[in-house]
Simulated assay, not measured.
Amino acid sequence: MTASDGEWKETDAPPPPAFAESRAIPIEMPDRTLLKFSIDPATIAITSDGVVRYVVLASREGGASSAYYEGVRCSTDEVKTYARFNDGKWDGAKNPEWKPYRHIRSGYVARLTYQGLCRGHAPQVSVRETVELLRRPVREVQ
């Protein structure tokens, strides 16, 4: 928590929402990335405390896939993993904590926030706007 946050308090996270790989929107990643990431737009929620919660799916080509129920705090560039989907059921994370997402090796959270979850250091205005941005991410001019 930074000084500008004052007495920020996270709202209780609801249980992980149902997700479907068939609805998932791909997250644009560098070609060298072995894992493919996507987000189920039906799971995105923007809460009154400024947290954007969602289910992200990770998969290897022709291999296993997994899912994570996460929250992003745009104001502080942090992510929290609430649960992981393993063997057909959700397993809650033990002592989930907010962590800077810029240091996550795979980089998918930073890409996801840039492609539509956040507008600078704030969440998008609506879930609808978020989904539209994720479906048509802004390409960087090279």
Rank of each mutant, 00 (worst) to 15 (best):
M1P: 09
T2K: 10
T2F: 05
A3K: 03
D5Q: 13
G6L: 06
W8R: 08
E10S: 08
E10F: 01
T11P: 03
A13D: 02
P15G: 09
P15V: 08
F19C: 01
A20G: 03
A20E: 03
E21P: 00
S22G: 00
R23F: 00
A24F: 01
E28L: 11
M29W: 04
M29E: 08
M29N: 07
P30T: 08
D31Q: 07
R32P: 00
T33R: 08
T33L: 05
L34W: 06
L35P: 03
L35K: 15
K36R: 09
F37Q: 07
F37T: 06
D40Q: 05
P41H: 08
P41R: 07
A42C: 04
A42G: 12
A42R: 11
T43R: 04
I44T: 07
I46Y: 04
I46N: 07
T47Q: 09
D49N: 01
V51W: 01
V51Q: 01
Y54M: 11
Y54I: 05
S59V: 01
R60Y: 13
E61Y: 09
G62V: 05
S65R: 12
S66K: 07
Y69M: 04
Y69H: 06
Y69E: 02
Y69R: 07
E70Y: 02
G71T: 00
R73D: 03
R73K: 06
C74G: 03
E78A: 04
E78W: 01
V79T: 12
K80N: 01
T81M: 08
R84I: 12
F85K: 00
N86S: 11
D91N: 13
G92S: 12
G92K: 13
N95V: 11
P96E: 05
K99E: 07
K99C: 02
K99W: 02
P100E: 06
R102S: 13
H103I: 15
H103K: 14
H103M: 11
I104H: 05
V109Q: 12
V109G: 01
A110I: 10
R111Q: 15
L112S: 13
L112M: 14
L112A: 15
T113L: 03
Y114I: 15
Y114E: 15
Q115M: 09
G116W: 08
L117R: 07
C118P: 03
R119E: 12
H121A: 07
P123K: 06
Q124W: 02
V125L: 13
V125W: 04
V127N: 06
E129D: 13
T130K: 09
T130F: 06
E132K: 09
L133V: 03
L133P: 01
L134Y: 10
R135E: 14
R135T: 08
R136H: 14
P137W: 09
P137Y: 10
E140S: 12
E140K: 09
Q142V: 13
Q142Y: 12
